[in-house]
Amino acid sequence: MLTLLAKLLHALNSDSSIRQIALAIALGFIVGLSPIFTLHNIVIIFFVLLIRVHLGSFILAVGFFSGLSYLLSPAIVQLGESLLTTPNLTVFFTSLYQLSLFKLAHWHHTYVLGAFVLGALLCAPIYFISKFIIEKYRVHIMTFFEKFRIVQALKASKFYRLYTSFSGGSSLTKGGL
């Protein structure tokens, strides 16, 4: 866990593309909301591995949003329930239901559909918010925190040594943690 956290901090502080990290968080959001072994999650994981997104950020995002999904589950189920049982959408879902892929993806399950729709709707805003925050972090927050004594103390800790092992000591010169 510490390693993953160190990787994320390294990514935030390093030259890793802001878009790669933001995309990893947005995709991690979709995967985190749904049960892990659903068809759309497997497809997303495949693309996460294939496309150059930051894996550490993705794994942490999945962990974080999985926890969040427990709190959101009533709303997720409610969303799926209302979509699947709305009379106006019955014809639409009935035609989709004839496709094996639809059933295989369990999109006729209230939780899975609710999570997927919520994830798909909110992944774009989350991408842009994440991007904005990381940019701000790199410009302002990182240098602001540098001034604190506690940060100086942390630099002497085991975690910092781990962190530097990933960054290869370059962070010091780059004004990292």
Binding site: S73, F93, Q98, H108, H109, T110, Y111
Partner: peptide, 14 residues
């Protein structure tokens, strides 16, 4: 239970 964990909704099929 369905409210907590969700449920399958089945549609007409052949």
């Amino acid at each position: 239970k369905a409210h907590e964990n969700g449920r399958f909704v089945y549609f007409k099929e052949d």
